[in-house]
C-alpha cells in the first residue's frame, strides 16, 4: 500500500502525468458508466435517420444504418477497455510467471523460456496478432487471447530483468540463508520489489492493447459487427466519410485521445519510478 501511496503522491506533483490520470479516469468512466447513460441502443437502426449530422437527438450524428454514433462510441469505449484489461491481464499474468521463474531459477528453464520469447519477439506485433486471430477465428474472445500472447514476451523480459537485479540483493540472500522456503522468498520478498517496472509496463501495454484491438477490428479481424468497436467503426466510415465526415471523426478522436492519455500516464509513471531519475 505504501508503494501505491508513493506513486499517487508523486503523480499529484507531476502536471503532465495528472492530465494522463484524469484522461484515463474519464475513459474508464465513459467505458463502464457510459453505456448506462447512453441515449440509444448502440445496435438499434433508425432507418429513416441514416447518415444524419450531429443534432440534439443524435449528438454525434448517425451512421449508414441510422445507428446513433454517440452511443456506439460509448459502447466502443467499453469494448476497448474490456479488451485492453483482459488481454493485458493475460499477457501480464503469463509474463509475470514466466519472468519470475526464468529470472529466479535461471539455468535451462531460463534458457528455454527466453528462447520461446525470442521466437515470439521475431514477429511484428500486429502480424502476430493477425495470424493468431486468423487461426483461432475472429471474435472478441480470440482477439483478447491473441493480444495477450503478443504482450507476453515484453512482460516476461521486464519481470525477468527486475528479478535478476533484485535476487542478488542482501535481503533476498539473507532470507534464503535463514531458511525461508523458496516459494516464500519469491512471493513475499522478490515479487513486491519488482512491481515498479511491472506497473509501468502494464500502463504502456494497455495503450498498445487498445491500439492493437482497434487495428484488428479496422482490418475486419477483431470485434465483429454489429457490435461496435472504434476500429471497425472507422473502417466502415471510409465508404461514407466524404458525405458524412462525423462517422469517421468521432471514433478516430476517441482512439487518439485514449491512446494519448494512456501514453501520458505511462510516460509519467516511467519517469517517476525510474530510480535513475528519482533524484
Amino acid at each position: 500500500m505504501g508503494f501505491m501511496k508513493e506513486i499517487i503522491n508523486r503523480l499529484k506533483q507531476d502536471k503532465v502525468g495528472l492530465v494522463g490520470v484524469i484522461g484515463v479516469a474519464l475513459v474508464i468512466f465513459i467505458g463502464f458508466i457510459g453505456p448506462f447513460l447512453s441515449p440509444h441502443d448502440p445496435t438499434e437502426m433508425y432507418k429513416s435517420h441514416t447518415l444524419e449530422g450531429p443534432s440534439a437527438a443524435h449528438w454525434f450524428g448517425t451512421d449508414e444504418f441510422g445507428r446513433d454514433i454517440f452511443s456506439r462510441v460509448i459502447e466502443g469505449a467499453k469494448v476497448s477497455l474490456y479488451v485492453g484489461l483482459i488481454s493485458v491481464g493475460i499477457g501480464a499474468t503469463l509474463g509475470f510467471v514466466f519472468g519470475l521463474v526464468s529470472g529466479f531459477f535461471q539455468g535451462w528453464v531460463d534458457h528455454l523460456i527466453m528462447r520461446i520469447m525470442d521466437i515470439l519477439f521475431a514477429f511484428p506485433d500486429i502480424l502476430l496478432a493477425l495470424t493468431i486471430v486468423a487461426v483461432l477465428g475472429p471474435n472478441l474472445r480470440n482477439t483478447m487471447i491473441a493480444i495477450g500472447i503478443v504482450f507476453t514476451p515484453v512482460f516476461t523480459r521486464t519481470v525477468r530483468a527486475a528479478v535478476i537485479s533484485v535476487k542478488e540483493m542482501e535481503f533476498i540472500t539473507s532470507a534464503a540463508a535463514i531458511g525461508v522456503k523458496t516459494h516464500k522468498v519469491i512471493l513475499r520478498h522478490v515479487s513486491p520489489n519488482i512491481l515498479a517496472p511491472f506497473i509501468v509496463q502494464i500502463t504502456l501495454a494497455l495503450s498498445g492493447a487498445i491500439l492493437t484491438e482497434a487495428a484488428l477490428s479496422f482490418l475486419g479481424l477483431g470485434i465483429q459487427p454489429p457490435d461496435p468497436s472504434w476500429g471497425s467503426m472507422l473502417n466502415a466510415s471510409r465508404q461514407y466519410m466524404e458525405i458524412a465526415p462525423w462517422i469517421a471523426i468521432f471514433p478516430a478522436l476517441f482512439i487518439i485521445v485514449t491512446i494519448f492519455c494512456f501514453n501520458l500516464l505511462g510516460d509519467s509513471l516511467r519517469d517517476l519510478l525510474d530510480p535513475k531519475l528519482k533524484s
Binding site: 472507422l234 466510415s237 466519410m241 478516430a252 482512439i255
Partner: peptide
C-alpha cells in the same frame, strides 16, 4: 506515437 496509423490515414484522406 499516440495517433494510430489507420486513424491518421482515414482523417488525412478525409
Amino acid at each position: 506515437v499516440s495517433v494510430p496509423n489507420f486513424a491518421l490515414a482515414t482523417l488525412l484522406l478525409l
